[in-house]
Design a protein around this nucleic acid. Structure first.
Length: 584
RNA sequence: GCGGCUGUGGUCCAGUGGUUAUGACAUAGGCUUCCCAAGCCUGUAACCCGGGUUCGAAUCCCGGCAGCCGCACCA
């Protein structure tokens, strides 16, 4: 078995990840999180909240997973998230229909399916594999469609990303944040994509969990007030230029932003926070890189985009996070589609004074003369530029209203020059979007935490979880399942649980077997209760990674463990070392 | 979607037409002053699903589902 298989097998056997619906034969692309997987996921999400909600002051919201059609028309998912396909009638191969006519038509995207099919027929394009006839062009959309309410009146779609929930709540979020930039909203939740061929376990799912932040910033100023906090952190950047050389470039974030390797400070800042978060949950630093999208793979509206990629055995480099500057694309698209203004009024530091010509049409005179068109004439007069007015001063003014040339005596218009104060301007914010694939991160944490070592000829499997993500933090093990030991052990379990720790009790099988069981699920510390608890009032704490043990007074257990779990003290300093020889 | 390979207790596997389906590990209960998966006793637990061939199917055939690999697709 290779590592990938070992990790998958362990995850299934011990209750991290289960293929869903197994009882009924299963369905590809769906997984259950079991009794250990669900808390692992929860703890990783909570650390994400620590980084992207609490520390940054972002707002977490929760939007419906089903969306109405309008959202996805505006976002482009209805048209852009589907592909025109055609299949060979002979050999059944499936092709992207638009790709087949690329050499004939420069922008096949603009054609309808019927037009593409016509083009295929007109040019007698056959199957590239066997030359067979191609079927009609049909659409495959990756969104799950459903019906809202009875009948087919209203179509609904399961969201393909959580991001749209933040965009379409922009006006309310803006008010919540008291009309000022920057601000951000986040969402952790399920998204759905009807993938053609889900593979590789939890790496490509049809129902998956995303954690996304939409950070709305002033497009004129992409610096970041907390940039200094991360400027000195070093990381390997796999930039466009570095990719051409095939070698990552190590530098600080400060340098990356200054040299323009990363487009600007704000983007660099969130790449850095992403980097810190991934390390905090247990992604291995030497199997993590940040790769910049090449210009041809970047969305046309994006200013810059960096993917966090991790190395997984057998799968290679896999994208787990994307951090992009999406500019004003999403807000502009929704503003156009919904006809709601999605901009922010940004105040200047100092109001700008500007002279302005105010034009006042004489409606008393215009009304009787132009009747119903008087209003249109007035509007046209107001729209004149100062230059046009100047040119006609004391003379006639010529306008074109509804295609008709109209002559107006300039005496029917008065104008005056006023000085106005401009206090600010309407700005459509740009969006920085860090988008996390939580399931992929969980699998990565399992993969990167897994290791095996040889203990006296026996293979020991261990998940070296960071205590902050471990589903079980402490296992309490009576050396033997006898009342004198199990009673105090159970009392310890209750005490630790009441102070909030995730504790398991295990009295089954030999002590060594129980250590192995807990090593395998990543329990950082084991408490062994032996007869010393009666003789000296002490128990031992065992460290998962070193297998070393220390002796600790029964009364100090809760304090010592919470300090150990939080990393406030080192294991060696937490108690007296125990030298244990194997009894023959 | 296409093609190839595969599907037996929780896990890994034996069984290629014939009683009650082999074994190991894991797991449960008990015994044991037992500290790193290997003691002793006793249990629980499986032929992916549906159809067909046959007196009889885990075994042969067809279909479905799932997994792995390749293609395509996706990012």
């Amino acid at each position: 078995m290779d590592k990938n298989e070992l990790v998958n097998e362990l995850a299934r056997r011990r209750g991290f990840l289960w293929p869903a619906f197994e009882l009924y034969g299963g369905a590809a692309g769906f997984y259950d999180y079991g009794p250990l997987g669900a808390p692992l996921k929860r703890r990783i999400e909570d650390i994400w909240r620590q980084y992207f909600v609490i520390s940054e002051g972002f707002a977490e919201i929760e939007a419906p997973t089903i969306g109405v059609e309008g959202i996805y028309q505006a976002s482009g998912h209805l048209s852009g998230f589907s592909d025109p396909l055609t299949s060979c009638k002979e050999c059944k191969e499936i092709y992207r229909a638009d790709h087949l006519i690329k050499h004939i038509i420069e922008v096949p995207d603009a054609l309808s399916n019927e037009e593409i099919y016509k083009c295929i027929q007109d040019n007698e394009i056959g199957c590239p594999e066997c030359g067979g006839e191609l079927s009609e062009v049909y659409e495959f959309n990756l969104m799950f469609k459903t019906m809202i309410g009875p009948g087919n009146k209203m179509a609904g779609y399961l969201r393909p990303e959580t991001a749209q929930g933040m965009f379409i709540n922009f006006p309310r979020l803006l008010r919540y944040f008291r009309d000022s930039l920057p601000f951000a909203a986040v969402q952790i939740g399920k998204s759905f994509r009807n993938e053609i061929s889900p593979r590789q376990g939890v790496i490509r799912l049809r129902e998956f969990t995303q954690a996304e932040a939409e950070i709305f910033i002033d497009p004129r100023d992409k610096s970041h007030p907390r940039f200094a906090e991360i400027a000195d952190i070093k990381m390997k950047f796999y930039s466009q230029a570095a990719q051409e050389k095939g070698e990552e470039e190590e530098m600080t974030f400060g340098e990356a932003a200054q040299r323009g390797v990363v487009a600007h400070q704000a983007l660099a800042y969130y790449v850095a926070r992403t980097y810190q978060f991934l390390l905090a949950v247990g992604v291995a630093a030497d199997k993590l890189r940040f790769r910049q999208h090449k210009s041809d793979e970047m969305a046309h509206y994006a200013a810059d985009c960096w993917d966090a990629e991790v190395f997984l055995d057998r799968l290679g480099w896999i994208e787990i996070v994307g951090v992009a500057d999406r500019t004003d694309y999403d807000l502009v698209a929704h503003a156009q589609a919904s006809r709601v203004n999605l901009s922010v009024f940004v105040h200047y530091d100092q109001p700008v004074k500007r002279k302005k010509l105010v034009i006042k049409p004489d409606y008393k005179a215009l009304g009787p003369r132009f009747k119903a068109r008087a209003k249109a004439v007035g509007e046209a007069l107001k729209a004149l530029s100062p230059e046009e007015l100047e040119a006609s001063r004391g003379d006639k003014i010529y306008l074109t209203i509804e295609g008709e040339r109209i002559e107006i005596d300039s005496s029917l218009v008065s104008f005056e020059s006023v000085e106005e104060e401009i206090r600010g301007e309407e700005v459509v914010p740009h969006v920085i979007e860090p988008s996390f694939g939580i399931d992929r991160i969980i699998y990565t944490v399992l993969d990167h935490s897994f290791y095996q070592d040889d203990v006296e000829g026996e293979m020991r499997s261990v998940l070296r979880f960071n205590p902050a993500v471990a589903p079980i933090e402490v296992a309490v093990l009576p050396l033997m399942d006898r009342k004198e030991l199990s009673d105090p052990a159970r009392a310890i379990v209750q005490e630790l649980r009441s102070s909030g720790m995730r504790v398991d009790y295990d009295a089954s099988g030999s002590i060594g077997r129980r250590y192995r069981r807990n090593d395998e699920i990543g329990t950082p510390f084991d408490i062994t209760v032996d007869y010393e608890i009666r003789e000296h009032g002490t128990v031992t704490i065992r460290d998962r990674d070193s297998m070393k043990q220390i002796k600790v007074s029964r009364r100090q257990i809760a304090d010592k463990l919470s300090a150990l779990l939080a990393g406030r003290i080192k294991f060696e300093d937490a108690g007296e070392p125990v030298a244990l020889g194997k009894k023959e």
